[in-house]
Simulated scan of single mutants.
Amino acid sequence: MLTPLKNGLANALSPAALYWLRSVKRAIMSEPPLPWPYGAQQEPGTSMSSPPAIAAPALLPSEDGRPIQDIALERYKLRQLPSPDSYYTYEDVLIVAAQEIAKMLTLCVQYVNGSHVYGDVAEFGTMGGFTAKTLATSMVFDLQRQPLGKSASGENPFRVLRLFDSFEGLPEITSPVDLTSPHVVSGAWAKGGCKVLAAPELRERIGRIIPPHRFEIYDGWFADTVKTLPPETRFALIHFDGDLYQSTMDALAPLFQRGMVSTGAVLLFDDWNANRALPSTGERRAWRELVAEFDIEASDCGDYSIAGKRFIIHSYRGIPADPE
C-alpha cells in the first residue's frame, strides 16, 4: 500500500529535494549519508560534490523597480507568504559571526515593535552596508507589526531608519584613550580606515528594500550630524559601529543629553569586545562614562556574535516621558 505512495512522492520531487528527504531519514536511522549526485557510485579515494542547497523562495525587486517592502506586503496580503517570519532571510551572510549579528538585529527590531518602544531605528557607522541592509529588511513588516499610531517620525506613522556615517572612514585619532588601544597601536584602526560604501551606493542598496520616505542618510562626522536632529527625535533602537571611544562619545552623549533615547530602547555595541575586550578602551570605556554621567539604568542583555553587546535602557537623567 505504501509503495505506490512512495513512488508517487519520489516522482513528484526534484532530485535535490528527494536527496534531502532521504538524507534526513538516513540520519535518523544512523545510516551513512547518500552520495551526490543521488545514485552515483563513489570511486575509492574521491569525494562527491555537495548537493545543491534547497533555499526558500527569495523576494526580489520586480522589473518595475518597486522596493522589496511593496512586493513583500502584497504577497503577504494575497497569502502567498504564510507569515512575516517566513520572509526574513540572510542570503548574503557567508559566515557565522555575521549571521549572529543579523539575527540579533532582526530580533531587536521585532522586540521594539512588540514592546511598543517609541522612536526610530539608528545605525552609527555603516561601512559596507551589511547591517544597514539587515535593519532595513527587518523593518519591512513594521507596517503589519508596529502597533503605534504615530512615532517620532512625525506624520509618517512608521519607524524611519536613520543611517549615520562620515563616508570618509575613521576620523583622525586624537583621543588619548584611543591612541593607547591595541587596535590603534597595531594600525588596524587608522584615519580613513573602514571606508567601503559611498553615500549614494548605500542609498541605492537600502532603497531596494524599503521606500525612500522610510530611511534617511546623515553624511558627516557624528559630532556634527547628531546636532541636526530635531528636538522631538526619539530612538527605539541604536546600533553603534563607530569603533573608537571618541566616536562613541560623539554620537551617544548628545543623544542622552537631549533625551532622544526612549524608555525600553535597545542599544547595541558592535565592537564591545574589540581591543582584547579591555575595559579601559573603546566602547566599553565610553559606556562606563556615559552611565556615570547620565545616571543610566539599563539591563545587560549579554553578548552576541564575537564582539557585540546589547543593553535595554530603562531610565537616565533627563529621560522624557513617552509621547502620547
Score class of each variant (00 low, 15 high):
205 R>S: 13
97 A>L: 09
222 F>V: 02
165 D>R: 00
167 F>Y: 06
223 A>M: 05
95 I>H: 11
221 W>T: 00
198 A>I: 15
120 D>G: 03
194 C>M: 15
215 F>H: 08
186 S>D: 11
115 S>N: 08
199 A>Q: 13
99 Q>I: 14
130 F>D: 06
112 V>E: 00
214 R>V: 08
136 A>M: 03
121 V>L: 01
141 F>K: 05
172 E>A: 12
117 V>W: 04
98 A>H: 11
163 L>D: 01
129 G>A: 05
199 A>T: 11
107 L>R: 10
147 P>M: 02
104 M>H: 09
104 M>S: 07
150 K>G: 15
130 F>L: 14
108 C>I: 13
224 D>Q: 06
109 V>C: 09
206 I>Q: 00
122 A>M: 04
95 I>R: 10
102 A>F: 10
94 L>E: 13
153 S>K: 07
122 A>P: 04
122 A>I: 00
222 F>N: 00
181 S>N: 04
167 F>P: 08
192 G>A: 01
178 D>T: 07
149 G>T: 14
87 Y>G: 05
121 V>D: 02
195 K>D: 12
138 S>A: 15
121 V>K: 00
98 A>T: 11
144 Q>L: 15
105 L>H: 04
198 A>W: 12
128 G>P: 14
100 E>I: 01
118 Y>C: 08
167 F>A: 03
114 G>R: 05
114 G>Q: 03
195 K>Y: 11
186 S>I: 09
153 S>L: 03
194 C>H: 15
214 R>Y: 07
172 E>Q: 08
216 E>L: 07
132 A>I: 00
174 T>S: 09
214 R>T: 11
122 A>R: 00
91 E>S: 12
127 M>P: 12
164 F>E: 01
221 W>K: 06
86 S>R: 07
113 N>V: 02
86 S>H: 08
126 T>H: 05
196 V>G: 12
99 Q>A: 14
211 P>Q: 02
142 D>Y: 08
151 S>P: 08
104 M>I: 09
154 G>M: 01
200 P>T: 04
93 V>G: 06
91 E>A: 13
131 T>R: 10
117 V>K: 02
156 N>T: 14
187 G>L: 01
217 I>R: 05
223 A>Y: 05
194 C>S: 15
169 G>F: 01
108 C>P: 10
134 T>M: 12
155 E>K: 12
118 Y>E: 13
206 I>P: 00
172 E>F: 06
119 G>W: 03
175 S>R: 06
137 T>F: 06
181 S>G: 01
203 R>H: 15
205 R>Y: 11
144 Q>R: 15
159 R>W: 11
156 N>R: 12
148 L>F: 10
158 F>D: 05
106 T>N: 05
101 I>A: 05
207 G>E: 04
174 T>G: 10
204 E>K: 14
94 L>F: 09
185 V>M: 04
115 S>T: 06
109 V>F: 02
155 E>Y: 12
99 Q>W: 13
222 F>D: 01
217 I>F: 05
133 K>W: 07
88 Y>P: 07
183 H>Q: 15
100 E>V: 02
153 S>Y: 11
112 V>S: 04
191 K>H: 13
213 H>R: 15
88 Y>N: 11
143 L>T: 15
91 E>M: 09
139 M>E: 03
101 I>M: 10
207 G>S: 06
188 A>I: 13
182 P>V: 00
187 G>P: 06
153 S>N: 15
